[in-house]
Design a protein around this nucleic acid. Structure first.
Length: 270
DNA sequence: AATGGGGCCTGATAGC
DNA sequence: TGCTATCAGGCCCCAT
């Protein structure tokens, strides 16, 4: 589910309910996510959440004594609900707040993660190889151009690699490549500077627009209040194999790149 | 160093 | 209706 926009929408959704609250209980219902949930997360009990940040697709709940790290994997979502609310089938982790509400992590496939970082701990290895945030000035077409020289993998695989730019998953990579008119199969190293500038621009635009629309809800994703995001209605190619291109009416095709399927217009994307 | 594939999981859907 | 196969938004790790 969650690519950068969905994670950011989650952050914005839970922030007003969680920041400033004291954690009155930490409940681990199913400790086996992508990695086992460490015992150290219980340190949060009694602490106040001072901020919620996002780095790539990780959410960082900061307290005076350390940071709780959340990742939503493929199927995770966060809800803020009254403590009395009955637990859902895949609610694996929760923080009970002094407001009598609680923050619950639901994740059917359990590809997500809950981790802990001490304040003085050196950066987690998870974060050490992350590229720039796409919505900041650290990310640019020039950077993509520089990093891609002599790379043979397809440009779609290249922009989905977190070392080059974070947060761009299958949906938004597919959409941005279409918007920029770039064939997803092309070797990353054989694309011009000008086209990377266009591509970077569209990556930024698509992500920002998706955040504005509350993210893309395919199956699992809902916002903190349980409502779906509306960006799905603006997807121009993702999930539309066999349908006509919105620009030229050519039939959209699918190709497998890496382990991911990619929809593209054979006419508009070159 | 770069690249490709496997694996972690459950659930929805398609096809028989 | 019920079975099986296929696919799904992420990302680490290993072999080549």
């Amino acid at each position: 589910m969650p690519e950068l926009p969905e994670v950011e929408v989650s952050r914005l959704g839970i922030e007003p309910h969680v920041v400033g609250q004291r954690i009155t209980a930490v409940k681990v219902h199913h400790p086996r996510l992508r990695w086992p949930i460490p015992e150290s997360v219980h340190k949060l009990k009694g602490q106040v959440v001072v901020a919620i940040e996002r780095r790539a697709k990780y959410l960082l709940l900061e307290s005076a004594i350390g940071t709780l790290i959340l990742h939503l994997g493929m199927s995770g979502s966060l809800r803020v609900v009254p403590v009395a609310t009955e637990r859902g089938k895949h609610d694996h982790f929760e923080l009970v707040l002094s407001s009598e509400q609680c923050l619950r992590l639901n994740d059917p496939r359990r590809f997500g993660a809950v981790l802990w970082q001490e304040p003085d701990e050196s950066e987690l290895s998870l974060f050490s190889n992350l590229g720039p945030e796409p919505l900041t000035d650290d990310f640019s077409g020039e950077l993509l151009y520089q990093r891609s020289r002599s790379r043979k993998s397809p440009v779609k695989t290249f922009i989905m690699d977190n070392a080059n730019v974070v947060g761009v998953g299958n949906i938004y990579a597919t959409e941005a490549l279409f918007a920029a008119g770039v064939d997803p199969r092309r070797a990353a190293g054989r694309i011009s500077r000008a086209r990377y500038q266009l591509l970077a621009q569209h990556i930024k635009r698509v992500l920002a627009r998706a955040i504005q629309q509350g993210g893309t809800s395919l199956r699992d994703f809902t916002r903190a209040d349980g409502k779906p995001g509306y960006f799905k209605q603006e997807l121009l190619v993702y999930g539309r194999t066999g349908q006509p291109c919105v620009n030229c009416a050519t039939e959209l095709k699918t190709v497998q790149l890496g382990q991911r399927r990619s929809v593209y217009c054979p006419d508009c994307q070159r």
